[in-house]
């Protein structure tokens, strides 16, 4: 397993009422959607359990390590929107550009920060779009309609973030 570096396997955006807003898989054809839906659901409790201790920061760090390869990192905004990034530690083959240290050492929590910040910016940009109407709480409770984000700009931005991220990136 030499010569493989971490990459983002999945990005999930979960709404305030634990409603799924968006799930992207990378690479989409190699990942099972249902498996990642389960993984995302399983981390909701972790968010809830840690919330009382998280008063200053929005970064929830490592939520859980699923197996040797997959690890889940979380971020929750003050408005209750959760971003979850699943990192595959052997996600893609190393290229000449990748530093040796990236493969040798595990990830630090700070490595994911730029990705989360970019995701949050993307979400804010989505809310600035007058044609996006945020899901209404009453509709979610009654399970009326889908709460999925359909904005192409947002989805494209999520894909860009997943592609641009690598361990040690400072700005996306």
């Amino acid at each position: 397993m030499t010569g493989r570096v971490p990459s983002i396997a999945c990005i999930g955006v979960i709404g305030k009422h634990n409603n799924p807003l968006h799930i992207s898989l990378f690479p989409a054809e190699e990942r099972a959607p249902l498996e990642f839906q389960f993984l995302l659901s399983s981390c909701l409790d972790i968010f809830e359990a840690r919330l009382p201790h998280k008063t200053a920061d929005q970064d929830f760090g490592l939520l859980q390590a699923v197996d040797e390869r997959l690890a889940m990192y979380g971020w929750m905004t003050n408005t209750g929107v959760k971003f979850v990034v699943v990192v595959d530690m052997e996600g893609r083959p190393a290229t000449a550009l990748d530093s040796k240290s990236a493969t040798a050492v595990g990830l630090r929590d700070a490595d994911l920060k730029p990705a989360f910040r970019a995701l949050q910016t993307a979400y804010i940009m989505l809310l600035r779009n007058a044609f996006y109407s945020p899901p209404i709480a009453a509709n979610i409770e009654q399970r009326l309609g889908s709460t999925q984000i359909t904005s192409r700009n947002f989805i494209r931005e999520v894909q860009r973030i997943a592609g641009a991220w690598y361990p040690g990136v400072t700005n996306i």
């Binding site: 008063t55 200053a56 905004t77 949050q120 804010i124 809310l127």
Partner: peptide, 19 residues
């Protein structure tokens, strides 16, 4: 209401979490 949602999303990102 819609404006309020957007405004908070935008401006609460650097604020400490209200408990």
């Amino acid at each position: 209401y819609r404006v309020g949602l957007g405004v908070v999303e935008r401006f609460s990102r650097d604020a400490p979490r209200p408990t």
